[in-house]
Design a protein around this nucleic acid. Sequence first.
DNA 1: TTTATGATTCGATAATTATCAAATCATGGA
DNA 2: TCCATGATTTGATAATTATCGAATCATAAA
Lengths: 122, 122
Amino acid sequence: MESTNAVPALAALAQEHRLDVFRLLVQAGLEGLPPSQIAERLKIAPPTLSFHLAQLRHAGLLQVRRDGRSLIYTVNYEAMNGLMEFLTDNCCGGDGSCRVPVCEPRSATLVRRRAARPARPS
Amino acid sequence: MESTNAVPALAALAQEHRLDVFRLLVQAGLEGLPPSQIAERLKIAPPTLSFHLAQLRHAGLLQVRRDGRSLIYTVNYEAMNGLMEFLTDNCCGGDGSCRVPVCEPRSATLVRRRAARPARPS
DNA sequence: TTTATGATTCGATAATTATCAAATCATGGA
DNA sequence: TCCATGATTTGATAATTATCGAATCATAAA
């Protein structure tokens, strides 16, 4: 994740409806949900939801696949983890004391420790 | 961190200058930096920077203290960690496979594992 | 008190964004 | 082919946001 991607991603999340949608899909996991169900659960008008889903997708935070007449939206966990890493990059001067969040559904490798840098002269 | 706080926090970060400022302060750690140095490093006009610092502060992401004529801005790590937790809340249906990011400068307890929920019937 | 410096606030302007009714598109079934 | 359903796109409107010159505020030193 770079600055170029991070700002649109954060902007996408910085809206009540979109944040709700994103969090719902984070919880839904790889299975995902169609707009009809999201709209019903969160009480969002279909055109408005469609607009927000497009924003999240263009920001790289969501992926979409088709299943018959339904579209299925899922979280792009790689982008989500990349954003977390970007925000905490070189946290506290990179003393190695902080950890990066990693969310990988049904995977074994879940937490990576940052490479520690030599302490700065004080 | 709740939804009420998360949207303003994300909105605060969803702007190029503010994201740069925040990340610079994340790296600066508890020591922090005065606006004059931030402005110089990031090439931001003082009134504009002041506006952005206020946004970040009102969002709860920054704290400020005074040192003579200078103000010193620092990251509110608790708010930062709360935001991370909120975004990854119940990740992947809460199967316990994901971890929460925690950044605590000069602290020992750095990663907390989520409480796993019983698996849903499939 | 006067002056200098670091920082914020005011005010005006330009640009971006959220919403939803109506129309359109895409797929599957009759 | 025609119809029904799930979803998106268009278009218009209302609301919010970023920027910076000029003015103001706060602290420290002369």
